[in-house]
Simulated assay, not measured.
Amino acid sequence: MQLPVNLLEVSIHNSWKYQAAFPPLGFVPFFENELGNGDTFGLYWPIGRENIEPIVAETWHDSWQVQPTYSTLSSFLAASQKAEEEYPKSPSIDEDPASPRALFYAAKESVRNQNVDSAIMLLEKATTVLPEYTDAQSLLWAQYVRVGRTAEATSIAIQAIISPPCFGARPHKALRWLCSQQETLFVEDDPIWQIRNKLKLVYGGTKENTDYPLLLTAIHQYLSQSHFVQAVTLMQTYAALLSSETVSFQERYSFESKEFSAWQVEVSSKLPHGSRYFQF
């Protein structure tokens, strides 16, 4: 994992170990501007981009969300210095042109102003920096559909479905649209495409949920295809969703958080740029 050149300007949690789905694998908290109660800033390496310096993300523990606020540690440090004793505000797109969160909110404004081309450009940039940015993927899917770019919309819908809930809501509209699409050669071997008509993307409040075995099978299929980026992404999503279920539900589906986390770390070592397990 590529470390920031100015890493020593923050105080990393040296004892941090990934053992549960939140925060996600690839996130490492630091002490600066920590609010307590699990709300903290930290380094986050987007999946498949471990050879690039991490972004700085912010965890919202009560809602199990991660906000991809700053594009680099340098950007965070500049905002923190400017804020002095106050909590640093999220940057605007002018202050941090590569901030995934700033790009996403700028894109939403472009959509409101009916400027689809601008929204697509901003969202493509946001999802390049952070491919598993679920909310940005969902909004980009909608814009691709709007302008008739069906092939891109299909790929983005699949990416939104496998991306973690900490980065956005389950993409129900994208799934419904995907179910309406005819067979297409370029995704016919994709596990999510194959099970799209069986998925519901609704979780919690039931004794059983057929999505979980479907998603677990999809993980194994991605692994058998050596599509390790997709496998690692979906594993994070699977872990997060199941972790939000009751203990008895997890037991019915043979889910044990520490064991699954260890499997995630193991699989991540097969990524093109190596493991997502951080050791300081």
Rank of each mutant, 00 (worst) to 15 (best):
D96S: 08
D96G: 12
D96P: 01
D96W: 02
P97V: 04
P97I: 03
P97L: 07
P97D: 05
A98H: 15
A98K: 15
A98R: 14
A98M: 15
S99K: 04
S99V: 00
P100W: 01
P100R: 01
P100A: 02
P100F: 03
R101H: 13
R101C: 12
R101P: 05
A102V: 08
A102T: 11
L103P: 05
L103S: 05
F104N: 03
F104E: 01
Y105Q: 10
Y105L: 09
A106W: 00
A106E: 09
A106Q: 02
A106M: 00
A107T: 03
A107E: 00
A107S: 08
K108F: 08
K108T: 07
E109F: 10
E109V: 12
S110T: 03
V111I: 15
R112C: 04
R112N: 09
R112Y: 09
N113G: 11
N113Q: 12
Q114H: 13
Q114M: 12
N115W: 06
V116Q: 08
V116F: 11
V116K: 08
V116W: 09
D117R: 11
D117C: 06
D117W: 07
S118F: 01
S118V: 10
A119T: 03
A119Y: 04
A119G: 04
A119M: 02
A119R: 00
A119C: 01
I120P: 00
I120T: 00
I120N: 00
M121N: 13
M121C: 11
M121K: 13
L122S: 06
L122N: 01
L122V: 00
L122K: 04
L122Q: 03
L123W: 00
E124H: 07
E124D: 13
E124L: 02
E124F: 02
E124K: 06
K125E: 09
K125P: 05
A126R: 00
A126H: 09
A126L: 05
A126G: 01
T127M: 11
T127D: 06
T128C: 12
V129W: 08
V129Y: 03
V129G: 06
V129A: 10
V129H: 07
L130Y: 13
L130D: 03
L130C: 12
L130S: 07
P131Y: 00
P131A: 09
E132W: 08
E132R: 07
Y133L: 06
Y133T: 05
Y133S: 09
Y133Q: 08
T134I: 02
T134P: 10
D135M: 12
A136E: 01
A136T: 06
A136K: 06
A136D: 07
Q137A: 15
Q137C: 14
S138C: 11
S138I: 11
S138W: 10
L139F: 10
L139D: 04
L139W: 07
L140G: 02
L140M: 13
W141D: 07
W141P: 02
W141Q: 13
W141N: 03
W141I: 05
A142W: 06
A142S: 15
A142F: 08
Q143M: 13
Q143W: 04
Q143R: 10
Y144G: 09
Y144D: 03
Y144V: 09
Y144P: 04
Y144K: 08
